[in-house]
Design a protein around this nucleic acid. Sequence first.
RNA 1: CGAGGUGUAGCGCAGGGGCUAGCGCGUACGGUUCGGGACCGUAAGGCCAUGGGUUCAAAUCCCAUCACCUCGACCA
Length: 571
Amino acid sequence: MRLTKLVSERIKDIPSGVVAKSHNLLLRAGYIKQVSNGIYSLMPSAQRVSLKIINIIREEMNKIDGQEVLMPVVMPKELWEKSGRFYSIGQEMVRFKDRNNHDMLLGMTHEEAAVHLCQNTVKSYDQLPYMIYQIQTKFRDEARPRAGLLRVREFIMKDAYSFHTSDADLQNYYQIVYQAYQKIFKRIGMKNCIAVSSDSGMMGGKRADEFQLLVEAGEDNIVICPHCDYKANMEVATSIVEQQSYSDGELEEVFTGKAKSIDEVCNCLNIPSSQTVKAVCYAVCKDSERIVICFIRGDKEINEAKLKKIIGADIAVKDLDDTLLIKGNIGPYMLNIENATILFDNTLKNGCGLVCGANKDEYHLKNLNINRDLKVEQFYDLAKVSEGESCPICGKPLTIKKGIEVGNIFQLGTKYTKSMGMTIQDQNGQQINPIMGCYGIGVGRSLAGIVEENSDEKGIVWPLAIAPWHIYLCPIRSDDEQVKSEAEKLYKSLSNKFEVLYDDRVVSAGVKLTDSELMGIPLRVVISPRTLANSTAEITIRKTGEKVFVELDNLTDALNKIIKKLEENNE
RNA sequence: CGAGGUGUAGCGCAGGGGCUAGCGCGUACGGUUCGGGACCGUAAGGCCAUGGGUUCAAAUCCCAUCACCUCGACCA
């Protein structure tokens, strides 16, 4: 490719408001162009990267017997009514009417379409297990797209669906996909991509794992045990919280005046926050009558994802007025309230000597003993894990890191095959619902994630496996006849063996060198009057900055060697 | 959906009721340079987001709308 003909533009000034590194670099190096909020065009260079990622995914999916299909982006309402998701999914699914006034939608995921594709097509247990996959555009009308390609509304995704006759068979295949994913992320050049347990969310099903790329720009919090294998998304992470014991005594009211928040009460009574009981109130969406009151140790936070699961409905923090409860003085002892679900967090188990609200303005209670003073039937895991708490597996301190979810795998079970009435005949002639797994990878998000992970102050550093081109052919002094003719010759000969981006512009050296680094092409071949005087070219490795001069006659060999070495090191 | 911010040339920005709307980068042409974003000259490029007011006069003031950005809520 000649750079003069490449549709793209490197820019010095980045648009205001760009915060993510990958967003900045991809814009500046001319890889992407924004069309709308969360909607981007890929320029030719980015499309090349995207296609390379897709090809690697495709290869690995084919290796585990995946069969590539293509399902529609636009689907009729009826298909999604069967699974119930036409109604259960909110505004992130785009719905519209066609010319016949028929309700349609844009696919944000394809379980329904996958079941539709297979049902009445596959009829016998003998044909299972199998997996179908596609690489296709999805549209999700996200409430707030952000950070360039990291969180968008329209994106390309590889989604796969497997069908099994038994749970054991799904378990088995799930592991195979798990391995394939590890390979894919490694092959496309990710270094810190880990699998973590996650919430199955609206997908339903039993087990789910996410593949999280650990980078600062990540939006998810990942709880990791550095000593054992425990890794989980904050949404589902648990920890062992050290029990604090405080001297017990008679339950007694204390005047705390205007002290309402945990900090204020602690200051007032001169106690640590872990000696208090905090009340957090939530409203249950779609049920305006009902509220949820959670009691938790004062130094801990509520994990709303966990709470949502326990309640089984969406919740929102409720700002109370004092008619119902006395805000800042809510306590579990003698709490009289109707239509409230009251939950206790595990951190309060066996607690004694605690301070809680007295349900009376300006007063708190001292010496609350949970077992003595309250009848708590069940304690729940409601707390958000914080850094340094003990690992639930090995007991060592946990760390928390930021991650981008680049892929996920779910054990769906029969949720869709049952609701949509897909059956096959088993060995005994019985009609059964196949058990499903589903498996996704975000292509654009992976691309941006790799940029987050692989860049320096000069620009992007593409891993060889997905670089848009391998070699940046960079003649310095293209106005010089000898340089120019040699460059043209090299472009022709190198293009036979490598993917070459030829900077055929007549611009100063600085511009070319800077652009080559910004664009992140793994190898740069420079020729100039100076190198040609010795019949050499200069090869620079983008990642290390390492430079070698090689004779023009040996250039191809030298490049082959370097590329082989990069490949071996997966760089 | 809540809170804040920004809309003026392809990009980054300045201007702030009246005269021909500017600057830098980029682009085109000419020339001098040239191994780390060179310099000089010339030129093209604007419905000042949209709609409505106020005014003799609006890019500028007022109102509304829309779009985009940031933080939060939300989120396979």
